[in-house]
Amino acid sequence: MLAIGDNCMDVYVQSHMEYPGGNPVNVSVYAVRLGGEASYIGAVGTDDRGIRLIESLRAKGVRTERIKILEGSTATTEVFLKQGDRQFGTYTEGVLADFRISDEDIAYAKDYDIMVTGIWGMIEQDLPRFKAIDIPIAFDFSDQWAHEIVMNALPNVDYAFFAGEHDGASLRDFMHDAWQKGPKVVVVTLGSNGSIAYDGNDFIKMGVVDCPVVDTMGAGDSFIAGFLIALMEGKNLRDCMQMGAENSAVTIQYRGAW
Rank of each mutant, 00 (worst) to 15 (best):
Phe203Thr: 05
Phe227Lys: 05
Leu237His: 09
Thr74Gly: 07
Glu165Met: 06
Glu71Arg: 14
Leu171Arg: 11
Ala146Glu: 15
Phe139Thr: 08
Tyr112Asp: 02
Leu171Ile: 05
Gly194Asn: 06
Leu154Asp: 09
Val185Cys: 05
Glu18Leu: 00
Ala230Trp: 03
Asp210Phe: 07
Phe130Gln: 05
Asn247Tyr: 03
Trp258Gln: 02
Asp134Tyr: 12
Ala107Gly: 01
Met122Lys: 15
Ile41Cys: 03
Ile119Val: 11
Ala43Gln: 09
Asn247Trp: 05
Ala160Cys: 04
Leu53Lys: 00
Ala230Thr: 04
Gly218Cys: 06
Leu81Lys: 02
Asp199Ala: 05
Asp134Lys: 14
Lys110Cys: 06
Leu237Ser: 01
Asp48Ser: 13
Lys205Cys: 11
Phe88Pro: 08
Val209Cys: 09
Val95Thr: 08
Phe141Asn: 04
Ala43Leu: 09
Lys60Trp: 08
Gly22Ala: 01
Ala132Ile: 08
Gly42Glu: 09
Thr90Gln: 14
Glu93Phe: 11
Gly234Glu: 10
Met1Val: 08
Asp158His: 13
Gly50Phe: 04
Tyr159Asn: 02
Lys110Thr: 12
Gly234Trp: 14
Phe88Asp: 07
Met241Arg: 03
Ile229Asp: 02
Phe130Pro: 07
Arg100Glu: 12
Asp126Ala: 13
Leu96Glu: 14
Ser56Ala: 15
Ala107Asn: 14
Ser39Gln: 03
Val29Ser: 02
Lys68Ser: 11
Asp134Thr: 12
Thr74His: 09
Gly21Trp: 09
Val32Gln: 02
Val95Ser: 11
Asp47Leu: 06
Lys235Trp: 01
Phe99Lys: 10
Glu93Trp: 11
Lys110Arg: 15
Asp113Phe: 02
Met151Thr: 15
Arg255Thr: 13
Pro212Asp: 15
Phe99Asp: 10
Ala75Thr: 12
Ser195Gln: 12
His176Ala: 12
Val214Lys: 14
Val62Asp: 01
Arg86Cys: 09
Gly121Val: 07
Tyr91Thr: 14
Ala169Gln: 12
Phe203Tyr: 14
Tyr40Thr: 01
Asp134Trp: 04
Val13Tyr: 05
Arg86Thr: 06
Cys240Glu: 02
Arg255Leu: 12
Glu71Lys: 15
Gly89His: 13
Tyr12Thr: 04
Gly61Gln: 07
Val209His: 06
Arg129Ser: 13
Gly35Lys: 01
Arg63Lys: 14
Ala169Pro: 00
Asp215Trp: 06
Leu34Asp: 03
Val29Lys: 10
Arg172Glu: 10
Ile204Arg: 05
Met241Gln: 10
Leu53Thr: 11
Ile133Glu: 06
Val208Ile: 15
Leu231Val: 00
Asp177Tyr: 07
Lys235Ile: 02
Arg63Tyr: 11
Glu78Gln: 14
Ser15Ile: 02
Asp105Ile: 05
Lys82Thr: 14
Lys68Val: 08
Asp103His: 10
Arg238Phe: 13
Glu78Thr: 08
Ser39Asp: 06
Phe99Met: 07
Gly50Ala: 03
Val185Glu: 10
Met217Arg: 01
Leu57His: 03
Val79Pro: 03
Phe227His: 05
Asp98Thr: 02
